[in-house]
C-alpha cells in the first residue's frame, strides 16, 4: 500500500507491505541507518524516532500508521549545513557517546523531552515547568538501554540542555 508522510521535513511517499515496521522501512527501504536495531522488541530504545514530536520505538510501530504524520530520525536532527542540534552538541561535549549504538535513540528521546516541556509546560507527573530535574530525566530515559556509559554522562548531557534553557 501507499503511504505519505513527512520525513525529516520532506514529504515522502512509500509503497510498503502492510506488515512493515517503521524501523524496517527506515533502515531497509529508505537507507536511513542512523536508527539502530537493538532488540526489535521495544526494550532497548535504540530505534527511537520522533512521531509528531513524541518519542516512539520504531520497531513496534507499523509503518502504515505514520500516514500523514511527521517523522524525525537522527539524520533529520542535523541541520542542512551540517550543524548539530544542541542535544547532539551536549552529548559530545559531555562525553556521553562511547560505542554510539544507543546514541541516536538517546538523542531523540532527550529531544522529545525538550519538545514536551516546551509544549506542555509540564513534565509528566511532576508539575515542573520547562526544566526537568535529574530524577525526571532519569525516569524519562528508562526505555533507552546503554551498555557502555553507565548513563551518567548521558544524564549530564540532558541536564545541560535543560539548564541552558533556564
Amino acid at each position: 500500500m501507499e503511504i505519505t508522510f513527512t520525513l525529516n521535513g520532506k514529504k515522502t511517499i512509500c509503497h510498503i507491505k502492510v506488515s512493515t515496521t517503521l524501523l524496517e522501512l527506515l533502515r531497509e527501504t529508505l537507507n536511513l541507518t542512523g536508527t539502530k536495531p537493538g532488540c526489535h522488541e521495544g526494550e532497548c530504545g535504540a530505534c527511537t524516532v520522533l512521531i509528531n514530536g513524541k518519542s516512539v520505538n520504531s520497531c513496534l510501530y507499523l509503518a502504515l500508521n505514520t500516514n500523514g504524520k511527521e517523522i524525525t530520525t537522527i539524520e533529520g536532527l542535523t541541520k542542512p549545513n551540517g550543524g548539530l542540534d544542541e542535544v547532539q552538541e551536549s552529548m559530545i561535549k559531555n562525553g556521553a557517546v562511547q560505542c554510539g549504538f544507543c546514541t541516536s535513540g538517546m538523542v531523540l528521546n532527550i529531544k522529545a523531552l525538550q519538545l514536551e516541556t516546551m509544549q506542555n509546560k509540564k513534565v509528566p507527573g511532576s508539575g515542573i515547568k520547562n526544566s526537568p530535574n535529574r530524577n525526571e530525566i532519569k525516569k524519562w530515559l528508562e526505555g533507552n538501554l546503554c551498555r557502555c556509559t553507565g548513563y551518567v554522562k548521558i544524564i549530564d548531557a540532558a541536564e545541560e540542555v535543560f539548564n541552558k534553557g533556564k
Binding site: T35, T73, L77, Q88, M91, I92, V97, G100, S104
Partner: peptide, 9 residues
C-alpha cells in the same frame, strides 16, 4: 563522537 551522534557512523 560527532559521527556517532548523527547516525553517520
Amino acid at each position: 563522537a560527532k559521527m556517532r551522534t548523527t547516525g553517520e557512523a
